[in-house]
């Protein structure tokens, strides 16, 4: 192994290790904080629970409750996450995660994939519409409250099918999420693509007779991914979606993790809130590490410089 290759490898590993460390600290703090804040709601939760005839959880001070929870989680080898008023947290999450993750992953893939396809089309065939999208459609779509879009989709659904089954509700929920995200993902991709397309090396690649598909695959897209912040945004949106979109789950009655989190927060179920937060940071960490790995693979030197930057 040459010295320079070893140096690059070390630099890459250092970047990776730093990312893991930052994420661990960030995640641990977020889990602790969410556990602490939600455990403060006990007073209100007790009131509500008394009214609904469900036995209230025993009031415990944060420190002992948190320590017990951490001990339980670690002691069980991540198989026991404590209990909520509706049963073991593990079961609550296990029942809800499949639908949330499916909706999240599908809508994420569709929104970013369609966004890329649309951005490529706007940058090549429909260039006269590109500016219109960036200056008109995107800002307006950005300003529209997401709940409104989700409700409109629901109204449309019940107009055609007043008793939709779970599959149909989930499908239309996914469609509403895709429509919500599409203007933003298209704008992000398009912004990066337009910047890279102006670079001299793209023109040079064409002048060398490189096939258009290869120009996109080897020159345009890797540079867009590395230099435009698309990767970071995509990872954060993935983490948010996998843990759930509260509006879609609520409006389409899908029964996902986000709904469980809201219930946990309003009823003082700190254990459930802690696990939901942990889940979010696990997905976020996996996404960040994958993104970091891709960035290191595409650009091991980490010194991406463009003429205009």
């Amino acid at each position: 192994m040459t010295k320079s290759v070893r140096g690059k490898l070390m630099r890459g590993l250092k970047r990776f290790a730093t990312s893991i460390l930052v994420l661990m600290v960030f995640g641990a703090s977020a889990v602790t904080l969410s556990f602490y804040i939600v455990s403060l709601t006990d007073e209100q939760a007790d009131d509500r629970l008394r009214m609904s005839d469900i036995p209230p959880p025993p009031p415990k001070p944060f420190a002992s409750r948190y320590t017990l929870w951490v001990k339980t989680v670690i002691g069980s080898g991540l198989t026991d996450f404590g209990s909520s008023h509706t049963g073991p947290v593990k079961n609550v999450i296990a029942n809800r995660l499949p639908v949330t993750a499916t909706v999240g992953l599908l809508s994420w893939t569709l929104a970013w994939g369609l966004g890329l396809a649309l951005a490529v089309s706007l940058a090549t065939h429909w260039s006269e519409w590109a500016e219109f999208h960036q200056k008109r459609i995107y800002p307006i779509a950005h300003a529209v409250p997401s709940l409104v879009v989700v409700i409109l989709f629901y109204l449309l659904l019940i107009q055609f099918n007043p008793r939709p089954d779970h599959f149909l509700r989930a499908s239309v929920g996914i469609a509403s999420l895709v429509v919500l995200m599409l203007p933003a993902t298209t704008a992000l991709w398009l912004n990066g693509i337009q910047r890279i397309m102006q670079q001299e090396y793209i023109r040079v690649a064409r002048a060398r007779g490189i096939a258009p598909i290869a120009v996109w695959w080897r020159h345009v897209l890797p540079n867009v991914v590395v230099s435009s912040g698309v990767l970071t945004q995509a990872v954060f949106s993935l983490a948010g979606l996998i843990v759930g979109s509260a509006f879609v789950e609520g409006v389409f009655r899908l029964g996902g993790v986000a709904e469980a989190f809201i219930e946990a927060a309003t009823r003082g179920q700190a254990e459930l809130a802690g696990v939901a937060t942990l889940l979010y940071f696990l997905v976020l960490s996996t996404g960040v590490l994958l993104a970091e790995g891709l960035a290191i693979y595409l650009n091991p030197d980490g010194d991406h410089v463009h003429a205009d930057s």
Binding site: E200, Y201, A205, R206, A207, H219, A307
Partner: peptide, 19 residues
């Protein structure tokens, strides 16, 4: 292009793909 006609661009730094 590239087979019968070669081209060397004006801008040395940005003429090469940075990745």
């Amino acid at each position: 292009l590239g087979l019968q006609i070669g081209y060397v661009p004006q801008d040395v730094r940005s003429g090469l793909n940075p990745l």
